[in-house]
Amino acid sequence: MKTRTESHVDAADVAVPGPLAVTDPSGASAGLPRLRVTKAYKMYVGGAFVRSESGRYFRVASEEAQGDADPAGVNIPRGSRKDVRDAVVVAKAAYEKWEARTPFNRGQILYRLAEVVESRAKELEHSLVRAGQSRAEAAREVAATVDRAVFYAGFADKVSALVASHNPVSGPHFGFSVPEAMGIVAVIAPESPSLLGLASVVLPPITGGNSVIVVASEADPRTAIVFSECLATSDLPGGVINVLTGYGSEMGPIFAKHREISAIDAWTADEALRATLEREAASSVKRVKTHPSPNAEMWFDRRRGQGLGFIERHLETKSIWHPVGV
């Protein structure tokens, strides 16, 4: 058992996770250590934290000696087909309302998310450190994640101006084309960076009005769950982003077969998984994009790690015509 004084984490830096044990504050136990409360890590679906319906889990190890509230390893839900189906139900309902909000409102909610992530920076950094990063790396990643949220917050009400068009058709008609969300976008998040990568692939689709079901990094799903706690305490309506944990290679094909999912954006997929996703998606003419796993550093690049292309990929174009005349 470690005490606060033995940990190299300064208590003042750690807002939420306590040390593994402290002396019982009431003093009633007379010198015996207080039993800490460990956290059950759960997936985030429809605004609620849920275990996998399957009851399955996988172990994620932690770097030791971090003064965390958790033991050296934690159990993470291993999502199943039923979990995907449940997520689709809530994501579908959430998408319809989310898309109907004004882009200004979506932008404000994304900004609120940036505020919440900033305020929980220490907790997120701590989770990244437990996953093996240095404190400096973790701080850099969290800062970049906040900035990414701010980037898309400011993009929500500008997308249309950039991708919509007036179509000067040859005839007595007024024609224009507007972008519209596709529906539910299923994402397989990058393995690394587990936080910035996740934010970078789930925020653009929701900026455009989609809802998202994402499988978090297999290597560090815990940070995705801590990020979900940011989602839960921002003003983002439940179901707009649903975070599943588990194996991308298992969940991906389930996404591909589900008819209510409109698109797949896979950032962790080997050639075999890529082929499977593309083949299974054909039965519902799903839009599938698989990406060769980028260097983790790409996500920190303001030109390559973010941009209009990330949003546009999950938009449909709707062209509208009306006669002009009296």
Binding site: N167, P168, G171, G175, E316, S319, I320, W321, H322, P323
Partner: peptide, 17 residues
Amino acid sequence: AGVIWGNTFNKFDPTSP
């Protein structure tokens, strides 16, 4: 739907996606 015609139908133009 990708193309919506209001008070018209089956209109096409190269400028219109």
